[in-house]
Each structure stands twice: as structure tokens, then as C-alpha cells.
Computed example of a mutant assay.
Amino acid sequence: MTRTLLAIDRVTKNFGRIAAVDDVSLAIRENEFFALLGPSGCGKTTLLRMLAGFETPSAGKILLDGKDISAVPPNRRPVNLMFQSYALFPHMTVRANISYGLEMERLPAEKIRARVDEIMATTQLSQLADRKPEQLSGGQKQRVALARALVKRPRLLLLDEPLGALDKKLRGAMQMELKRLQHEVGITFIVVTHDQEEALVMADRMAVLKDGHLLQCDTPHEIYERPADRFVADFIGVMNFCEGSAEQYGVRAANDALIAGTLPDDLSPGSAAIAAVRPERVALSPTADIANRVSGTVEALAYHGLDLQLHIRTALTEKPFLVRVTADAANRRPVKAGDTVEIGWAAEDTRIFRN
């Protein structure tokens, strides 16, 4: 187990009567890519600002390498913050932008040149050293801002919506670039994002926050496959929900159908419950051994290239049931709006939450 680099110990931040961050505890490991995820106003940016030193906790401690840095000013922390806007100096070249922080520390010129050359090679900026920001693309500006932050060799790099200014295609490419760079430089990254897909792709672990509270902290796989509650299930990815009453072996839906699944320990039979299943876990024309099955009418189809999303009207829910099938499966079993189909999923793919 990699050792803990940063410990957030029961941290609270109040603004008047409002708790922007409420009793949050996290242990972030050395050389980890960690994501803080949640909707606007959940407290993730406030937490990041406390880590950077721009806000002081109202309660709790922030420990870096076991030392409390809660009251240490930003310029005295081995922490760097990269903003969404990049904040590059427009009159300076790429090299000058990257070396600026080291020059402010009055390092020897030879040492500055060596470190800047090294980080420009890592971030693939060597050929752009003499260009100014106005001559760079969005992705290149992002790499310059990242290089400027990394050249100071912080123990911790904080990234606030680092890809928010990029278009969708470039965002996808830069997600993998950030992951590669983090692995190469061996620095702990903490990224704040509201983009679920971005966090799933980049993070080793992630924390989901809502209204200042920590709801779940785990690997992307665990959070996607085993969300802690309905909010997390709905926020991360796409989910079908079916309300009903808990029974020993699942949830009794409004149409009296039993949706088979395993009740969580904190939910007893008779309680209001909600059954959930991911669209990709639902099959068209399920095999005979599938526990959950229902017939419905195809209302709409959404083509995504690699797969097809079907909107199917069933008696289980008021909203159409979403089913994602691969393009290959869609070719083998063509469907169109108005078709009557049978769908189904395994009991182990049902997630059940308190409603």
C-alpha cells in the first residue's frame, strides 16, 4: 500500500451559516491521481482552495507528510495550483513562462535551463520554446501551464477544471496526456472536475461530494459499479431507476413485478426502495436464465457510433427504460421505433437503494 501523502482530517469550512465543506476526511496517497467530483456548489473548489492555502479551514486539519499545513501561507507550501484559464503571460515565450517561477526563487541560470529543458521534453514543448501564447493551440497552452506548474517540482499539484476550456475531442486527448505526464513525473495530482467521464478516465481514485458532504471515495470502477446511494448512482454515468417496496429478494415494483437483486444490509423488507440497473447491463432478447425480464415498446433510438441507445417504454417505470447495445448486436438484432421487444438483466446487476 502506497503511503499517505495528504490527510484531510475532519475539515469544515463555513461561510457565515453555510458549511461549504462539512466534516470531510480523505487520505490521498503518494503519486496518486485523485479526483474531487460533484455538481456545482458541492464544495470541491472550496476544498481545493484550502489545500492550496487560499482558504483556512474553520475546523479540522490538513496534513502534508504528517505536518499540519492548515495555516501555512500558499507561497510556503510545496503545492502548486493550475487554473482553468491557464493564466499565461502573453508577452513571454513558452520558455519564459515556464521558467518564471524558478527565476522568482533566484535559482542559478544553469539549473533553471536544465529543469526547463527537462520539463519541456516531458510535455513535448521543446519545438515551441520560442513561441508566445497567442501562437499556441488550446492543447498547447494547457501543456505550457502544466509544465510551469511541474517545473517547480511540487509535492502536490492541484488542477481546477484543467480541461474545461478545451473542445470535446481535444479534452479526450488531453485526459490521456495528463495521465501519462502524472505517471512520468511521479507527482500526486488532485483534479477538481464536474465531468464524470473525465474523472472515470483519469483518476486512480475519486471522491464524490454533495452539499459539502463526502458521499463516497473509491476507485472509478467501484463507484461506477457499486455506488453508495441513489445520488452517486445517478451522478456517475447513466442509470435506470425503478421505485417500489423492498422484499427479501429484491424490489416489488408498482406493476407488482419483482425486480430481483440483493438488499443492502441497512434496508429491511417493507421499506421504500429503488432498484437500479445500468443501460449496458440490460440485454435485448435475454436468455431464459435471466432473472429480470420485461416487455416494452421502442420509443426512440440514439446512435452513438460504437453503440446504440434504445428508449423503451415498459410498465416498470414512468420514464422510458434505457438500453445500450453494441453496433454489432444492433446489426444482428435490428430494431426500430414502434417495435415490441423483451429486455432483461441479471439479478447481480441490480443495485438497490433506500428511497
Rank of each mutant, 00 (worst) to 15 (best):
L209S: 04
Q135V: 08
F235S: 01
A52M: 02
A87Y: 04
S25M: 06
N80T: 13
G53T: 09
L159F: 01
L166S: 10
T188N: 05
V277L: 03
V191F: 15
F353N: 02
I98W: 09
E134T: 12
E184N: 07
Y100W: 13
M50R: 02
D160L: 00
F34I: 10
L48H: 00
V323G: 03
I236M: 11
H221T: 15
Q182H: 14
D195S: 08
A302E: 14
L156D: 04
L81E: 03
S58V: 07
D289Y: 06
R354C: 08
A330Q: 05
I274W: 11
A272V: 13
R281Y: 10
L178Y: 02
V282P: 01
G138T: 00
K67W: 14
I274E: 05
R148H: 07
L48W: 08
P108D: 11
V191T: 14
M104L: 12
P154R: 00
G186I: 02
L258M: 05
D328H: 15
A27I: 03
L306D: 14
I18F: 13
K169V: 13
F321Q: 10
G296E: 00
D23S: 14
L88R: 00
H183Q: 15
L37H: 08
G43M: 07
L163R: 00
A288S: 11
A283V: 09
E222D: 10
E55T: 10
V282C: 09
K111L: 06
L159S: 01
W345F: 04
F353A: 10
I259T: 02
L284H: 12
L181M: 07
T45G: 04
A114K: 15
I112H: 00
A257L: 04
H221Q: 13
A257G: 11
R76S: 11
L5T: 12
G270V: 01
D117F: 07
D229I: 09
L26F: 12
E30G: 11
R49D: 07
G237Y: 06
R180K: 06
T45P: 04
S268N: 07
L263K: 00
L267I: 11
R171A: 00
M176K: 12
S99D: 13
M92A: 09
V94C: 09
L156C: 08
Q248T: 06
P269T: 07
E342V: 14
D23H: 11
L125K: 12
A273R: 03
L6P: 02
V144Y: 10
K169R: 10
G41Y: 15
L308P: 04
A330R: 05
A114I: 00
S285I: 12
V208W: 09
C42P: 06
A327P: 04
L26W: 14
S40N: 03
L267R: 00
I28W: 08
K152N: 07
